[in-house]
Write a protein that binds this DNA or RNA. Structure first.
Lengths: 258, 258
DNA sequence: GAGTGGTCTAGACCACGAG
DNA sequence: TCGTGGTCTAGACCACTCA
């Protein structure tokens, strides 16, 4: 049998939904984009189960193999998680750990300790050209600027400048610090419906700025690690840019390369 | 039609080849392992084309979709490269660049410069317990220990201790340095038939050892980046362990995390 | 034009998880 | 026991590369 594309629903009660993206793109790619968008928008929330593969195929009027390939790609991206016999679920990535694992702050059992967080300031500013480029905004667009200290054993160990598009994150401005809690990404999800699924980081080692050395209680000639991070949602749209600085001696990093 | 497994060749001239691995593993996984082994052993060399997908399916007596999935996995691992309309080829990874890109040694156009290489010493030693564990050897097994300096603009910038299993790499002991050249991995491939396809790295920042500071021409109280690397062949067997040290200020690293 | 990988379809049976 | 994902098969047509 040769059917390039099934005929449209023909009046069935549960007809096919429209797929995102250019009609010239492969079906599985368009379905992939569509599901990623539903995760970005919160229609599919972390922990929730997708419809079964055959059900997805039926909903979007594609062959089972095509639906399977779209889901496969999203699993490879880390957005979905398959559990044999149980279903396919939306993953909740944990990037707070991916930052903290760079540094040597562990308890007696070698477990990573979550640091205390102290928000030093919250401002609304106009984005510089460079920042706007990172966040896919226009220069002068409003951004929220958080400055935050992170402390282990009561000692300041990391200083962070965090920039967020005002349009998406304005609820964060008025939240009491104890409601935000020690980790920002769960707060983004709970109060702004923004999910971080991908990050890019750049790591550099430099002499400490005088201001940073003072904030981190380091000798003025000491060295710091600077980590620049761009965080993206499930549709790969940038939603946060931050620059973190910490003592260089505390730094440790492991990576697999292919 | 329901056929769990095709009947064996039945006297055809080009019967199915045997697949590696436990018979309880999926066919595509066993085919994947088989192809990876052929790359490790040099039967499929970098740059060479695999048989066409349908031909692979015929050779190993599996369905086209199964052969395709095995190849797909190897493409995802970075061992193979597809070129639409042309064929599927064995990739040659370039890990020398993955090390060098950490450091800021670039020309006026921003291109990475390949450093001069100077092998300081070559010895045969007995592996310590820790080293043996890294290389999947037994403590006391013979290893080759190379110490190497890498220089940019005539200045020593990296010092490296490199350990290799003697059994696989003994030809490297007798090669003149100008035959080895500035990069080791091509020499491994050319003279020892060993291909590096995967690496794991750990990065730490510490105060310089006196000996390293002297070799790198740094102040005795300066800081260095230490990069520990384990290199593996296409079958994921470890074949090299090295520790490299360089000036911390020169360090820069970029990474995507999912 | 011949041959390659890329996409899409269709459907069978197996292995696993949860109630 | 039932529904889920995992594996495997079979074959059509399209898009691309290269001689």
């Amino acid at each position: 049998m040769v059917v390039k594309r099934r005929e449209q629903s023909a009046g069935t009660a549960t007809g096919p939904e429209d797929l995102d993206g250019d009609v010239h793109l492969p079906l599985y790619r368009r379905l992939q984009t569509t599901i990623a968008r539903k995760i970005s928008s919160g229609e599919y929330k972390p922990g929730f189960a997708l419809p079964a593969e055959l059900e997805v195929a039926r909903i979007y009027d594609v062959a089972p193999g095509t639906a399977r390939k779209a889901i496969e790609e999203l699993v490879n991206e880390g957005l979905l998680e398959r559990r044999h016999g149980a279903g396919t679920f939306v993953r909740r990535p944990d990037f707070n750990n991916s930052m903290l694992r760079f540094f040597h702050f562990r308890d007696a059992h070698g477990h990573q300790l979550t640091p205390e967080s102290r928000i030093v300031s919250r401002h609304v500013e106009k984005a510089s050209g460079a920042l706007a480029a990172h966040l896919a905004l226009s220069a002068g667009d409003k951004v929220i600027h958080l400055r935050r200290l992170r402390l282990w054993d009561g000692k300041p160990r990391l200083i962070e400048d965090i920039y967020l598009p005002f349009a998406l994150f304005h609820p964060i401005l008025d939240l009491p610090e104890d409601v935000i809690g020690p980790l920002l990404y769960p707060a983004y999800e709970a109060h702004c419906s923004q999910l971080v699924s991908f990050v890019k980081e750049e790591i550099t080692i430099t002499d400490a700025e005088a201001e940073d050395a003072a904030a981190l209680d380091l000798p003025s000639n000491d060295m710091v690690v600077t980590i620049d991070r761009l965080a993206m949602n499930p549709s790969h749209a940038p939603i946060e840019w931050r620059r973190s600085r910490g003592e260089a001696r505390r730094f440790h990093y492991a990576v697999d390369i292919t």
